[in-house]
Design a protein around this nucleic acid. Structure first.
Lengths: 203, 203
DNA sequence: TCAAAATACGAGCTATCATTCGCATTTTCT
DNA sequence: AGAAAATGCGAATGATAGCTCGTATTTTGA
């Protein structure tokens, strides 16, 4: 798998100052996106806030969409870098496995949560509906593996639906808890309760 | 409780034809909002699709925001009309109660689900963050009551978090299932599984 | 050193969109 | 009928935002 282009800069910055400028632009864009939303993130405002000329911005980003795409691309890379797939052996206590999966997913959402929230809020209308799905891909794989490896699978008439319910609820709860229940996230209470939710439903 | 104004039409249509026109406008707006999103729902396009003049639109809606507000307002009214709060007595089997709450919530989302999805997608950036919360208010009340009435409450160290987890997961699962798992919704499989999820977690 | 390449700039072009306003048509009511 | 009220209309306006392009400045490297 090669890196996704994410609509690359129209020109690669080669000198140090121009590379720095690209970072400055992205920082400014990120702040505005988070604080005021995509509509108020005009290219002129970004350049103003970054303290550079609007022309310079377009030297490296062919259009506004490319700017957003690059922000999303970077967020995805940072996020995925922080998470590794959960591995386990079938004889391991299932509680432990579930807890590790949950913990991993919480960590996934803890990387720059403000950007995560902003992207989740703004990207759907750009037709990037599968962004979230893609980000959560590893979690889904872990859950799927747990599901296939453990004998408990056989119990369910509709394992597909069960899996859907699990990943949807885990994802939504963490997503919302990051915003509304920071203390529970930090204290580990969320991890405990989520583990309990998944365990009790599954076993 | 009086009807919320929702930014009322600048002028009340009194003749039959003008009242019909307001409906036509709202229908056109709804279709475009659902199919193409808020950005592409320009007032001129709405008037064109409705087959009326742009000036006529502004006779009854002071601005675009009022148009969207009226769509949201109507959706909310239709939705709430379809749901009544779940009542029960403490000695009733908890499984039954949970099932009725779940069923009610599924029905809540089954009223014009396309509009529901569109509003959930577009409203957050208009600062209407609590729209969803408000819609689900009755469900929350039901859950809260169940929680307070039943002795099982005492078991939990952090009942607030438990309630948060329940309402978030139930809400998210139904919301997503309406889009992605229509057959499971219709067959009742979703109701079964959700009931099981809540029951097993709670008891 | 000095010319070529890279970088930076921002006034202004173009397109889009919400909204207005003066006028035409239809309905109401006496 | 016929005047007044209600309704309907759409070209035009004003504002905003994405983006371009000619020019000025800085860096490179021979």
């Amino acid at each position: 798998m090669s890196q996704e282009p994410a609509v690359r800069p129209r020109k690669q910055p080669v000198q140090a100052r121009s590379r720095a400028m690209v970072e400055t632009i992205l920082d400014a864009a990120a702040r505005i996106l988070i604080e005021e939303g995509l509509d108020d993130m005009t290219t002129n405002r970004v350049s103003e806030r970054a303290g550079i000329g609007i022309g310079s911005l377009y030297q490296y980003f062919p259009n506004k969409q490319a700017l957003v795409a690059e922000l999303a691309h970077r967020h995805k890379q940072e996020t995925l870098a922080a998470v590794k797939e959960v591995t386990f052996t079938p004889d391991e206590p299932i509680q432990n496995i579930i807890r590790r999966i949950v913990r991993n997913h919480i960590r996934l959402h803890s990387v720059d949560p403000e950007m995560h929230i902003a992207l989740a809020r703004e990207l759907p209308r750009l037709g990037v509906m599968d962004w979230h799905e893609e980000l959560n891909h590893d979690i889904y794989k872990s859950l799927r593996k747990l599901f296939d490896a453990h004998p408990l699978t056989a119990k369910y008439a509709n394992p597909d639906l069960v899996l859907f319910i699990l990943r949807t609820s885990v994802e939504a709860i963490i997503h919302k808890a990051i915003i509304e229940r920071d203390s529970d996230v930090r204290s580990g209470a969320l991890e405990d309760e989520l583990t309990r939710l998944v365990s009790s439903y599954l076993v």
